[in-house]
Every structure is written in C-alpha cells, then in structure tokens.
Amino acid sequence: MAGLLSPPFMSSYNVTKAGVVALSESLRHELEPWGIGVTAVCPAFVNTNLANSFRSPDPALAEISAKLIRNGKLTAEDIAEQVRKAVLRNKFLLLTHREGRTAWWVKRFAPPVFRREISRAARRLRARIEETR
C-alpha cells in the first residue's frame, strides 16, 4: 500500500514500493502477449517478524512502525490465500486490506478528500513521534 498511498514519514520505503508497482505494471504489458499474467500484491501492515528487524534512523518512528506491524489484522497465511485467488483470476492489483482498498478508492476518485485525510494523519503521526521522543 505504501507504493500507492505514499503515507507520511516513509518516503524512502514508499518510493521503493512504488517502483515495484511500476515494474509490475510494465511486466504486465510486456508479458501479456505470451499469456503470462502479473499480480502486484499491495498489503498494508501484516503481523510478521518484520517488526523485529525493522530499522529506521528515527527510534520513535521505528517504534510506531513496529507497533503497526504487530497489530496487523491479517496474517501471512491470509495474504497467501488472497494471492492464490488473485493469480487464478489473473487479477493485476491485489489490495489485501479493506482499509487500503477504501483509501485507494478515495485517492483515485476524491483526491481533495484523500489529501485532507492524509494531512490529518501526518499531523497526528508527527505528534506521536514528538511525544515518543
């Protein structure tokens, strides 16, 4: 989801994920003539061991990110099942979390609303970061 929604305070991570989405889209077009499908999987926070190895130059941001990962609503197994179904249907973009699908829809079809909400989220996150410091 970071590659699609560009959440605040994650710039370097967001750009790498946006690159994966762009690469997937290019491969989709390039491989389609051979009957090869591509599925770009865009999960939100998933409760995995990533929280244990997450690194950030900002300890407060690392702590908040680890908490979000630990509180992920879907498991890796849940995501794997969604991926299996999406590949069978030759679905290109798989947004695994309901909240992510909603945010993506709002960003695409109501940009001013998305911008307002992402700005509010940035202010709240900034306050949490400063509070943690």
Rank of each mutant, 00 (worst) to 15 (best):
residue 38 V to A: 05
residue 40 A to G: 03
residue 39 T to N: 07
residue 62 A to G: 06
residue 73 K to S: 14
residue 58 D to I: 15
residue 67 K to M: 09
residue 41 V to L: 07
residue 50 L to K: 01
residue 46 V to H: 09
residue 29 H to R: 15
residue 69 I to M: 05
residue 71 N to A: 12
residue 56 S to C: 11
residue 25 E to S: 13
residue 40 A to V: 15
residue 61 L to W: 01
residue 70 R to D: 06
residue 36 I to S: 01
residue 61 L to D: 07
residue 62 A to D: 02
residue 32 E to V: 12
residue 38 V to H: 04
residue 64 I to N: 00
residue 50 L to H: 00
residue 65 S to L: 06
residue 55 R to P: 02
residue 59 P to F: 00
residue 54 F to R: 04
residue 87 V to Q: 00
residue 57 P to S: 14
residue 72 G to M: 01
residue 56 S to Y: 00
residue 86 A to Q: 01
residue 45 F to G: 01
residue 76 A to L: 12
residue 86 A to C: 06
residue 84 R to F: 13
residue 57 P to E: 09
residue 35 G to P: 02
residue 41 V to C: 06
residue 22 A to Y: 10
residue 66 A to Y: 05
residue 66 A to R: 15
residue 70 R to N: 13
residue 74 L to F: 07
residue 52 N to P: 03
residue 73 K to L: 10
residue 83 V to W: 03
residue 85 K to T: 15
residue 32 E to Q: 12
residue 47 N to I: 06
residue 78 D to H: 10
residue 51 A to D: 15
residue 82 Q to Y: 02
residue 32 E to T: 12
residue 51 A to M: 02
residue 34 W to R: 15
residue 86 A to I: 06
residue 80 A to T: 10
residue 68 L to G: 06
residue 83 V to P: 11
residue 72 G to Y: 00
residue 52 N to K: 15
residue 91 K to V: 02
residue 39 T to E: 03
residue 39 T to H: 07
residue 36 I to D: 02
residue 42 C to D: 00
residue 34 W to M: 13
residue 67 K to I: 12
residue 38 V to F: 03
residue 49 N to M: 15
residue 39 T to I: 12
residue 35 G to W: 09
residue 69 I to K: 01
residue 28 R to I: 08
residue 63 E to R: 14
residue 44 A to N: 03
residue 45 F to E: 04
residue 63 E to I: 02
residue 30 E to L: 12
residue 90 N to R: 15
residue 66 A to P: 08
residue 54 F to Y: 11
residue 23 L to I: 13
residue 65 S to N: 13
residue 52 N to V: 06
